[in-house]
Amino acid sequence: MDNVLELRNLSISFTSPEGTINAVRDVTLDVHKGEVLAVVGESGCGKTVMCQSVMKLLPKNSKIDRGEIILDGTDITNYSERNMRKIRGKDVSMIFQDPMTTLNPTIPIGKQITEAILVHNKISREDAKKRAIELLDLIGIDDPVHRFNLQPHFFSGGMRQRCVLAIALASNPKLLFADEPTTALDVTVQAKILDLLLEVRDKLGLSIVFVSHDLGVVSRIADRVAVMYAGKIVEIGTVDEVFYDPRHPYTWGLMSSHPSLVKRGGELKSIPGMPPVLINPPDCDMFAFRNKYAMKADFEQMPPMFKISDTHYAATWLLDSRAPKVECPVSLRKNDDVMEGCL
């Protein structure tokens, strides 16, 4: 068993006054043991909803329409809240962009971590406390014995995110969802948290699904990358495949809007328009409406996932044998001397 998570044809929808929103559409995805899988895409593409579905933290007005969620070999698609409580935090955990969604502002950090440990481990409070201090040490909080009794407001944003990570890791989960965990942090702090996540992954051997819209961050942390658009995964591959040999025009668009890939004074090539609202989405390539390479087929039929290598797939009709040859417009080449526009 090499996958800690398997999503099979997962579809999730929301009811809204305007109609049914198909937020996640027929997603099939594996998360390998010990890997960091990054999920990228513009906001509203379904990244958070996909993570929430595994945690069973979906908002009340949503439901799983179809598909399966297999966590470490067990089908949890229809798990009750009672069953979920047994595995949430223990097998699978989640951290968010704002650490205060997890932390209670009035309770000392150490106590919050201790409680998180006691939820799933039948050990004495004394032992749990010891383990909490070990965790604070692991996530790089200096002087954990002293800091143990401080409330969250004594901590900086970066330190709070570390504490949230300690809580998430309290019961040694196999899988961690990290939903934009560094977006609100300063770059120097962000760099340290990314390194910490990699270190924790190596030490504890857990898998991480890292949601981000920052391609720089993804380059740093990911082993594999899934690109999501309009509720679907449109490209997936190793980080090298997706960055040095992207195949989907949406991936090209994301890369071309990044300032590091353009010379100063040059022009960013933004993707025109915005992601669509997913009410009654037509059965076609939803990116076609913003895609200057779109062909007739894109408006008529949903492209399948075309295989590029054993690890690299993309859903675009450009990969069909009948399609005209289109050159990737982004000039990121492996082993190039660091790009002209690059930091």
Partner: peptide
């Protein structure tokens, strides 16, 4: 430290990058 912390969308470069600490 600041300039060497800013992530760049280039996996090879990022993974071999040494950050200055301050």
């Amino acid at each position: 430290a600041l300039l060497s912390s800013a992530p760049v969308p280039d996996p090879d470069y990022e993974k071999s990058r040494v950050r200055d600490e301050y």
